[in-house]
Write a protein that binds this DNA or RNA. Structure first.
Lengths: 229, 229
DNA sequence: TAACTTCGTGATAGGTTCTCACGCATGAAG
DNA sequence: CTTCATGCGTGAGAACCTATCACGAAGTTA
């Protein structure tokens, strides 16, 4: 994760680099991505605007760095939640993950929006970021896999199952992740995102629906389909 | 819908107003909301930048107008899909709605993002827009209601059901919409949005998952829960 | 015909990102 | 210990943006 700080210069450079990202994140937290201004960051750090360009080639590069960091932070949050619930029943562990996912998103809505919201056309995550988001998926799959347990998979393979099998193989998950777990893992994610996304968009608030109840309902639907209590 | 054009002046004004929105939509379609420039719109229409301010008080007002129109367009698309499938089995009608929902979103991703993506903090839809999005919900509820049919609802009312009952009553849907339909309607929406949102974010593409298969799986999950085939 | 309303224009203020040439200070090599 | 190169920050400036303002030219009504 952290390379050797090597020379003193690099250490300082890394320090200001982190400080820039900290300020950028704070700006985004109140005001959205549009409120990010390299000029303002420079001023807040006590230096001029153009100085930032010594550290980031462009405004978009700053955003991209935040995205990559964000993926890692989300995965870390999920791992921590899974670790905290490791002694509880598998079904409860899945529920804890669902709640943790929403909590993380709600705590920093604009960052979540940068990760899973609309992107400028043509934008594609760097491989580094794709790998990071993959970590979240692994956590989910482990938890759901524990619920499924050793039950044999009676589901007749449909189109989706076949694609998922290919997908899992290509990803190196290997055949030890059974099809049902795979399917439920992906669906759990899209369902969680559906609720969280609409909550952050303010639609659920407009309708006066409680997002937590929806999250719980969706978690329960996944657990039930996995054969859990 | 359309008021009387009254005087000739108003007719012309409405015409340029529409033209502005057309150009705005085109700009957003390629480049996202950040690419919207009133200056550029004016230039494209053969007039100066500030002239636009005779029609919209601010840049955000243009975006807001697009949002309101967008809600209506989505509802219209769903209604049209429902009408086209009116002679088919109820389960098929729900499926048609799911596909239509995704099709509409994919056809104009940035507009969809403006409707259901992250908003600038503090932003809240005008009542007009909330009413418009409500229309989409009604279409969904009708289709799902047809699948549920006259089956009695055996579901033990949980938290979510109780909240939905209050919600439905407050909305004037009346008690004729049964709890199960209500619940499935909301869940159908969040599930569809989950898949579509991740697709538009490019996450599914990164993972090489086919969104259509996911949509079908989710529609089937709703239909199954409704008791349909 | 005269008065009034509406529309579009150019100028302008203040903001942004981003490039550039310059000077300073730090760390490294001889 | 001295010299030199590298990296860092600055201010000026180009090109863009939103938004406001005073002004003149239309079209509309009395």
């Amino acid at each position: 994760m952290s390379d050797a700080p090597a020379t003193r210069r690099e250490r300082l450079r890394l320090q200001t680099l982190e400080e820039i990202k900290r300020h950028a994140l704070a700006q985004i937290a109140e005001g959205g991505t549009g409120a990010l201004s390299l000029n303002a960051i420079g001023k807040a750090m006590g230096m001029s605007g153009p100085a930032i360009y010594r550290y980031f080639p462009s405004r978009d590069a700053v955003l991209e760095a935040l995205v990559t960091d964000g993926y890692a932070a989300l995965t870390a949050a999920l791992e921590s939640a899974a670790a905290a619930a490791t002694r509880r029943a598998p079904a409860r562990r899945v529920e804890a993950l669902g709640v943790a996912y929403r909590d993380w998103a709600v705590a920093q809505p604009h960052l979540y929006g940068m990760l899973f919201g609309l992107r400028p056309t043509g934008y594609r995550d760097p491989d580094e970021a794709i790998a990071a988001v993959n970590g979240s998926m692994v956590v989910l799959l482990q938890a759901i896999g524990a619920v499924v347990g050793d039950r044999e998979a009676p589901a007749p393979a449909d189109h989706l199952d076949r694609e998922l099998a290919r997908w899992s193989a290509a990803r190196g998950y290997g055949p030890e992740v059974d099809p049902r777990t795979l399917r439920l893992g992906v669906l759990a994610w899209t369902r969680l995102h559906g609720v969280v996304g609409l909550e952050l968009a303010g639609v659920l608030a407009d309708m006066e629906l409680d997002p937590v109840l929806l999250i719980e309902a969706e978690v329960r639907s996944i657990v039930a389909a996995a054969g859990g209590s």
